[in-house]
Design a protein around this nucleic acid. Structure first.
Lengths: 155, 155
DNA sequence: TTGGCTGCAAAGCTTTTGCAGTGCG
DNA sequence: CGCACTGCAAAAGCTTTGCAGCCAA
């Protein structure tokens, strides 16, 4: 499920192109570059990070275009937008159902496969549940070395 | 667990004052007002909302003080900071272990009691899990009426 | 008394918007 | 060929910072 080998990247990229076409959206060089960058990066980059990486290869790329394109992808259901910690929104090309691990220290976000049956039997009175998402909070292996203790910032 | 009757508000307020003292922090009129406002509000207000509500009763209140105080409370483990959706951080005086329901439409955040055993047996390879948090995404009862369909932004 | 806190204001970061020109389909 | 998309720039929303004066302990 944490599958980011070249074949999967290609398949994901193709699926995003097809999805854009299906939604009646145009495939421009800028969008193609953003899609390729996102599909090939499992680290959940921010809009800023994507922009910075593409400046070299697509010099005319503008900030607004990155936001516009990511917004179009999210609206078409072709990628996910994650707001799991303070700071910029992160984007996720992995559209399989999965959870996330977030490092308290460095902010890293990693996919965590969903094991066992979905908790879609979930019922919350007075609320129409569409999806249940889990966030594993803690420390990534890099930060776990001699990390100072930290109070729980998320309740 | 969603307990916000006057008695609980008083207890929560007292606990926050005691916690501030224990952390060597001063209890100023501004901080007292912020603590009371937060303890009495189960709706997870933003810093802006708290500021707006206190403008009337504490005219000298400044924006930076609201942020400073909320930051002090979070650092001392006396309240939680929630980043569950795009937009401003929300604050939560409920420090019992619980989950959250987030409305896709209006952004409302509601506490959801944790039922059954904690999933603290959770294990993620290469990650040191401190807490597992669940987010129920969907529509609140108000938005569920004739709400236009919405693509899953967080899968 | 004094170090921490407040208020003000300015800056920083993230995201959105308006608009004229461009190019994909 | 037309309309969606792009780039630029400015603005809007959220949060942090610097600093002089004030006050809780």
């Amino acid at each position: 499920m944490i599958d980011r080998d070249p074949t999967v990247v290609r398949v994901t990229t193709e699926a995003m192109f097809a999805g854009l076409r299906d939604s009646g959206l145009k495939i421009t060089p800028q969008r193609a570059a953003i899609v390729r960058e996102l599909a090939g990066d499992p680290s959940h980059p921010t809009a800023q990070e994507i922009f910075d990486r593409l400046r070299g290869s697509v010099p005319s790329m503008s900030f607004a275009t990155v936001y516009n394109t990511l917004d179009a992808l999210v609206r078409s259901g072709l990628c996910g937008a994650l707001s799991l910690a303070p700071g910029a929104t992160r984007f996720d090309a992995n559209m399989h159902a999965h959870h996330h691990a977030v490092c308290d220290q460095c902010g890293m976000v990693r996919d965590v496969p969903r094991e066992g049956p979905a908790d879609l039997a979930a019922r919350v009175p007075g609320f129409s549940v569409r999806a249940v998402e889990r966030i594993y909070r803690g420390l990534c292996s890099e930060c776990a070395g001699a990390a100072p203790p930290q109070p729980d910032p998320s309740h």
